[in-house]
C-alpha cells in the first residue's frame, strides 16, 4: 500500500514536470492561437482579364491599369499577309479600382469604332478559415457604343441603336496555387440586330481557367457557348487560348483567338472565325498599373 502511494506521488511529480519540459522545446506553442482567421484567396489570375473575358480579379483599390490590346488578322491569310500581322485591331482601355470590391473601366476599340464602359463588383470572395466561402462571385455590367457612321443615313436612325449591354455573373474558384476555374452565365442585349431572325437578348455560358506553369507564366483558356438560334448563322462560339507572362510591373498576355472584338458584346455575339479553318488570330494584351492612391488595405 505504501509503495503504491509512493508510486502515485512519483507519477504526480512526473506530470508536474512534464509540461515545463515540453514548453522548452517549442516556446511559440505556448501562445498558439486557437481562433482561426479568415484568409481570402488572392491572385487567382495574373490580371483582371482571362483573355477577352473578365477574370475573378479586380484592379486593386486606388490603382489605374492601362491596357493595350491587339488582335491581328487571321493566320490563314498566309505569308502574303505575314500570317495576319499586317492587319491589326486595337483596344485601348483604362481600368480603375474604386474600392477593393468595385472597379470601373472604359475603352475604345477600333472594331466598329466602339466605346465601352463597365462596372465590375465582387459580391463574394473565396475564403478559408474563420469564414469559409468556396467561391468568388462577381457581377459585371458593361455597355458598348458602336460609333460607325450610319450604314443607311437616309433611314431614320436612332442613337439607341448604337448601344449594346452585357450583364454577367462570374462564379469562380481558385482550386489550388496554380489552378483556377470560372463559369460565366451571360446576357447580351443588343438594341439593334442586323436581321429579324437574330435575338435582341442573347444568352451565353462561358467557362475560363488558368493553370500556372511557373511562378511567372500561366496558360489561360476561355470558351463561350452561345445557346442556339440567337445570333446570325455564320457566327461561332468564341474560343481563346493564351499565356500570361509577368515581368515585374507588366503582365503580357499572348494568345490565339477566333474573335476580333475585345468587348463582350463583340466576342460573344460577333465572332466569325473558325478554328478548324485556321481563321484564328494572334493577339496580345499588355497591362501596366499605376498606383494613384495609396490605400492598400485588405
Amino acid at each position: 500500500m505504501k509503495s503504491f502511494r509512493k508510486f502515485f506521488l512519483l507519477a504526480l511529480t512526473f506530470f508536474a514536470v512534464l509540461p515545463t519540459v515540453f514548453a522548452q522545446d517549442d516556446l511559440l506553442s505556448l501562445i498558439e492561437d486557437d481562433k482561426p482567421t479568415t484568409e481570402f484567396a488572392k491572385a487567382s489570375f495574373k490580371t483582371t482579364r482571362v483573355i477577352n473575358s473578365q477574370s475573378l480579379e479586380n484592379t486593386a483599390s486606388g490603382v489605374l491599369d492601362m491596357k493595350i490590346s491587339h488582335r491581328f488578322g487571321p493566320l490563314n491569310g498566309g505569308a502574303y499577309e505575314l500570317f495576319g500581322l499586317d492587319a491589326a485591331t486595337i483596344r485601348i482601355g483604362l481600368d480603375y479600382g474604386i474600392s477593393k470590391h468595385l472597379m470601373v473601366g472604359v475603352g475604345r476599340s477600333s472594331v466598329q469604332k466602339t466605346y465601352d464602359g463597365f462596372l465590375k463588383m465582387k459580391l463574394l470572395r473565396q475564403s478559408s478559415g474563420a469564414r469559409s466561402m468556396p467561391v468568388t462571385v462577381i457581377w459585371f455590367s458593361g455597355m458598348a457604343l458602336n460609333s460607325l457612321k450610319w450604314q443607311n443615313p437616309e433611314r431614320n436612325n436612332y442613337f439607341s441603336s448604337r448601344l449594346a449591354y452585357t450583364h454577367q455573373l462570374i462564379f469562380g474558384r481558385k482550386f489550388s496555387e496554380g489552378f483556377t476555374l470560372q463559369f460565366m452565365p451571360t446576357l447580351v442585349h443588343r438594341n439593334l440586330t442586323a436581321t429579324d431572325a437574330e435575338k435582341h437578348d442573347v444568352i451565353a455560358i462561358g467557362v475560363a481557367g488558368r493553370q500556372k506553369l511557373t511562378r511567372r507564366l500561366a496558360i489561360n483558356a476561355e470558351y463561350y457557348y452561345v445557346l442556339p438560334d440567337q445570333i446570325a448563322e455564320n457566327m461561332r462560339n468564341s474560343l481563346a487560348i493564351g499565356f500570361d507572362i509577368e515581368t515585374g510591373g507588366h503582365v503580357f498576355q499572348l494568345h490565339f483567338t477566333n474573335s476580333t472584338a475585345m468587348v463582350e458584346k463583340g466576342f460573344i455575339t460577333e465572332t466569325d472565325g473558325n478554328w478548324f479553318d485556321g481563321d484564328i488570330r494572334f493577339g496580345f494584351n499588355i497591362s501596366r498599373v499605376f498606383t494613384i492612391k495609396q490605400s492598400n488595405k485588405d
Binding site: 516556446l27 486593386a60 495609396q294
Partner: peptide, 27 residues
Amino acid sequence: TGKMEFAILMKAFKFEKALMEEHFNEN
C-alpha cells in the same frame, strides 16, 4: 534560458503598392 522564438506570417506584410504585395507573395 535566453531562448527566443519568432514567427511571422508572410501574407501579413503590407506594401504601399498592391502589385508589390502580390508579387512578394506570389513570386
